[in-house]
């Protein structure tokens, strides 16, 4: 079995939830989100995937963005933050995820009994 392929499929479903969850704490720019994800083992997403996703979440009204110049950078960065709609979507997704994860855990531990 190709475990990386399976992991990739899992991550596909979780990428939106992961991005929204990172932005719950504070506004971040793309590379910061990628670095936070890669610091959590098993949650990396590719550099190419992140911007179309952030772009779509912004169009859907779940994120808003603003360009900001940081002191440590010589160039402006696009910072994303959660909107109230994004926060509500995250809440719903977290609930769904917890229910799903509990069910899978039960299945793995007790064979569904």
């Amino acid at each position: 079995m190709n475990i990386n392929r399976w992991k990739s499929q899992l991550m596909k479903g979780a990428a939106e939830l992961a991005c929204l969850a990172i932005l719950r704490e504070r506004p971040c720019y793309g590379v910061e989100i990628l670095e936070t994800l890669s610091s959590l083992q098993g949650l990396e997403i590719s550099d190419g995937s992140i911007y179309p996703l952030l772009n779509r979440l912004q169009r859907d009204g779940k994120l808003e963005a603003a360009w900001r110049e940081d002191e440590d950078a010589i160039h402006p960065r696009k910072y994303y933050r959660l909107t109230p709609l994004g926060r509500a979507a995250l809440g719903e997704m977290v609930n769904e995820w917890r229910g799903f994860s509990r069910a899978v855990d039960r299945l793995i531990q007790g064979g569904g009994q």
């Binding site: 990739s8 596909k12 997403i45 996703l53």
Partner: peptide, 11 residues
């Protein structure tokens, strides 16, 4: 949802 992640989930 599938198109968002076409580049692949893993780095």
């Amino acid at each position: 949802e599938a198109a968002d992640h076409r580049a692949g989930g893993l780095s």
